[in-house]
Amino acid sequence: MNLKRVFVAAICAAGLLISGCGGGTDSSAENKTVKIWTSGEDYRNEYYLTECQKKFPDYNITLEYMNTSNIAAKVLEEGDKADCDIILSEEYGYLEKCGDNLAELADFDFAPFLDDIVPAGHKYLPEYKNSGCIIINRAVLDKNNLPVPTSYQDLLDPRYKNLISMPSPASSGTGYMFLRQLVNEWGEDAAFDYFAKLTENILQYTSSGSGPVNALVQGEVAIGLGMTGQAVFEINQGVPLEIIFFAEGSPFSMYGNAILKKSYDRQAVRDVFNYLATDLCKGNNEKFFPDQIFKDFAPTIKNYPTNIHYGNMKNDTLTEKERLLKRWTFS
């Protein structure tokens, strides 16, 4: 008897909980629910979510992290059934790929943005320019009696074996921009030769772009190929990391925000999107990614490198990317 009671209670409880959780049939609750998918870094997600919840206390806003390729794949697979209203911090290439599922942002203002970063179809708004750099943890270098590298060639020195972290170009946009840039600078074969050798020294290709900086913070590696914005954020938190650039300059890629077609007409979605794309976009620009995107707004961040020499990022299209990634077998 005792047993039966335990099971019946467990199953009833479970049933109640499901109906409670899945109880989204209430249309007003449904209308105020805004689901955001993002590939953004953790601390920025925190910023966006906190600010949105503050601004719209009545709305039920959720924000979920997935990597860039996953967001695109899911949107393409699931189409209108995707459990998402807004895509945040997604790479231009992938946004372009999802174009058919995205609403044309006719009611939003593209004018404040620099002309050369406004996408042709107006399916997504610019959000930030993600630029890359080489980040070092001097303590780990010192512990291993190693010098600060000064060029990409230096990184091939066997003494750096297992002390370098880089995001996988296959799953991370940040990883890819380093590959793209070196292909542009040196030619495809030379670049792939280089990565074949660099792989020897890499501890692990991380699947997220924010992996290397976090590994540096934890002292697991000495050198990371990562995001300037994230490195500066950690430096300003008091973590002793340093940013360096090699002669080729800083790789970069553009990220933007979009609304799924099926959600475009919902007021709550528009409210949140508008806030994300204007005030919070400025805030993001000001706090995390100060590379200029607005015509009349050029913020600075403490410890953020100035006068960045941007590298050659031509041909940064999705077809090119897919072609290069076919050749990428290191991770």
Binding site: E41, S165, S171, S207, Q218, E220
Partner: peptide
């Protein structure tokens, strides 16, 4: 697994 991707130990 998500924290693995971001190395957030």
């Amino acid at each position: 697994t998500q924290f693995e991707a971001q190395r957030l130990i």
